[in-house]
């Protein structure tokens, strides 16, 4: 077993900087894509990597989608201005989130089959395509969010907005932030 996780965990204190949290989470998604390509193209089954991908897709990724879909995007829709022209971008990103979750489900199925059979997904052309497609779309999606959404969020969100985002990011992960203070408790 690998002792060091292949996808780096987020430093817990980053929850106090929600936009940096999301940016760092995007970096982890890039690490995920790299891992997915490795597992998807290898001719031997990389068991540890497969388990790490499964954990991320089952837990981390759905939470990240909620962070954005149910928190950041609605808040941005309220705060952004005409010049930001963000509506259609957010609309397209939401559709991509939906597609990404569907691709993630296909990938989970493929990984579970591979682990059950002890057979590398890279040995099958169709399975390999599931892996490479996921990585391709996810990288494009992250690039758009980093290039457009996060810079506008940094510009438009107030300190109170960021604080409330932090509180909900933490709560979604089972942590309670003091609305005034800095300490998190589980």
């Amino acid at each position: 077993m690998n002792q060091v996780p292949l996808i780096e965990p987020l430093p817990p204190e980053l929850v106090h900087e929600p936009l940096n949290w999301l940016f760092a989470e995007h970096y982890r998604h890039r690490q995920l894509c790299h891992l997915i390509e490795r597992v998807g193209t290898a001719t031997v089954l990389l068991t540890d990597e497969a388990h790490e991908i499964l954990t991320f897709l089952r837990h981390d990724m759905p939470l990240h989608v909620i962070d954005e879909e149910d928190d950041l995007f609605p808040l941005l829709r309220r705060r952004c201005q005409a010049a930001d022209e963000l509506d259609s971008v957010l609309g397209a990103l939401s559709a991509q989130h939906h597609d990404d979750l569907n691709r993630a489900r296909a990938l989970i199925d493929s990984l579970e089959r591979a682990l059950a059979d002890g057979r590398a997904p890279g040995q099958d052309r169709e399975s390999r395509r599931v892996f490479t497609d996921f990585a391709l779309h996810e990288r494009r999606h992250i690039a758009l969010e980093n290039a457009v959404v996060l810079p506008i969020a940094r510009l438009r969100l107030t300190a109170a907005d960021l604080r409330s985002l932090s509180i909900r990011l933490a709560a979604r992960r089972g942590l309670l932030l003091d609305p005034q203070g800095e300490e998190a408790t589980s």
């Binding site: 957010l90 939401s94 559709a95």
Partner: peptide
């Protein structure tokens, strides 16, 4: 007009919920 900018059906629902 707002709904037209949102392609994802679930996000359209959520927008109108608000």
């Amino acid at each position: 007009a707002d709904l037209d900018a949102i392609r994802d059906p679930e996000t359209r629902v959520n927008f109108i919920c608000e």
